[in-house]
Design a protein around this nucleic acid. Sequence first.
DNA 1: TTGTTTGATGTTAGCGCTAACATGAGGCAA
DNA 2: TTGCCTCATGTTAGCGCTAACATCAAACAA
Lengths: 336, 336
Amino acid sequence: MSSDLTEPGTGPTGAAPTLSEVAKRAGVSSITVSRVVRMPDLVAPETRARVERAMRDLGYVPNLVAGALASARTNSVGVLVPTIANSIFADTVQGLSDKLEPLGFSVILAQSRYDAVREDRVLAALLSRRPEAIIMVGSPATEEGSRLLRNARIPIVETWDLPANPIDAVAGFDNYKAGVAVAKHLVAQGRKQLAFIGGDDPRGTRRWFGFRDEALASGLSEPRRLILDRKDSGSVAAHARLPDVDAVFAANDAHAIGFMSGLRKAGLLRDGPASAQPVAVIGLGDLEMGQLISPTLSTISVHGDAIGRTAATLTLERGGERRIDLGFELVLRDSG
Amino acid sequence: MSSDLTEPGTGPTGAAPTLSEVAKRAGVSSITVSRVVRMPDLVAPETRARVERAMRDLGYVPNLVAGALASARTNSVGVLVPTIANSIFADTVQGLSDKLEPLGFSVILAQSRYDAVREDRVLAALLSRRPEAIIMVGSPATEEGSRLLRNARIPIVETWDLPANPIDAVAGFDNYKAGVAVAKHLVAQGRKQLAFIGGDDPRGTRRWFGFRDEALASGLSEPRRLILDRKDSGSVAAHARLPDVDAVFAANDAHAIGFMSGLRKAGLLRDGPASAQPVAVIGLGDLEMGQLISPTLSTISVHGDAIGRTAATLTLERGGERRIDLGFELVLRDSG
DNA sequence: TTGTTTGATGTTAGCGCTAACATGAGGCAA
DNA sequence: TTGCCTCATGTTAGCGCTAACATCAAACAA
């Protein structure tokens, strides 16, 4: 009777049709409809055609919530990033999403906004949806978050870093070494007064340590470290706070470009090569934008989308190497 | 017995604990545990404490999949964007996520990659998870996608545009008018040879139409239109294909900055004000970057995050205005 | 013929939770 | 005392699907 109320082809009038309504209309049992949806090869062609017809007539859309409960498989992965806007993490989300979507997995996205309390909250929220894996940028900020993830007994992939004691799998690069590489390069260029600008999140801090340690090891005085507020790409103004500096490593390209903008205002930017720059600037991330501005931006290139794709792979394969170092590359252009 | 196997505080050894395991341990019925989780005020303080103790001991994490099936509420919204990487849509996702997360909603994110077939596929996948609303950038590319959404009987919010016949709610701005505004401005500036560079997606195309119509209405010859491949920020090279042009409207800031880079190479970029530019350039999106480069970028400013927040609001409130024009603003700086 | 295999479909039970409706104890007005 | 309310908790049924195990007919080997 309720199916009588439904006009074929024009859409449902009431509640969404269920498997068993389709089954009734096709004159089969519901398990057969379920098979048509999930393992069509097991169903005889004529039966299948009848069922498909009934599904179309009713506008049937499978209910994966019910399916997930019955099968204990949600076909979803939780993804936790500090922030998605204006960030290179969007590349990572795109990469993993491109890899997972064709396999029928959905991405449940959450942001921590660099806030430990919020991180724990969204982590709990994610886990209560029973994702089959969690991919996160960085590592849990708290012991509680770490415990939650360990207890979940699902693949956990930490990215954008190479933590010493990962929960499970890792896809990232060595942020400390990136700092070292930049300092080495600047020292080789004859720079003397180094500075670091960026956030004080874990990964940025590791870059700072590498940068500082290498500078000190090379006999330079301790570099200055300017901790910028997030969104404080008023890093334009940062220059004013770093007089006498002749080389800057910015924790990301946006900060680098902002800083260069400050240099330009101060007349300290040349359109020539690195050697002509009164102040060398190196970024991190290799934003496309870095190649479009003048002078072009030297940077540590990191493949955000490869990190995402690799993380997705680690999510699906339980065996094999669980710690993948995707490396980085110092790309030298005109800014430093 | 199975709870005997679980060592309190060290995490579960087997399957995740369920409501009724917690209930047994606390000596109450499962509905009471459910109430402690969802409506703690209804439970007597001592009982509540006992239940909370049991939850902690067992490391209980509620199963929202089961809860969603039982209550017919998933507390999730589906979000469909063309792409998340390097795009201003990330702002929109951040905005809506910031609004929805505190309310207990999760975001299920999908990308269409500007591909109609993929869009329909991910739309079906989203709907089968029974989100309580769908927020998408733009409108469905196909009739089939549109039908799916209409039949879903949930709030649907189309964003970043103001479609004439929306499925349900809308949060965006008038892309045609944006094109008109830019053309008007360039005409007033005395520019004669206009050009438009950008993609041929629906919204970009509407900007083009507004731009062209206004140029023609002002007595100029038809502007040139250069359709760039996505990721073809080889818009650097675009300049070579637009000789004699004295004003360009780029469908987004990234293209604009790429084009300016091409102009610089050709010696056609000045550090002075708009009036000094041999070729005026106007972007769209108001990336932070636009203020950091030289000359600073004139652009149509659009608040991606406000679009996201508004869309989230439209998702939650069924009554009230369903068509919200968030407008845009022509921000004039030095590029044109 | 008889047993055995294969292919197609069905039956049953239950995933972990919640809505809706009891139940029962205590308080309190008349 | 009676009736009626309020508060705290419980019972029952079922959300829509799938795993696991039947069932049964046809095909086929010995």
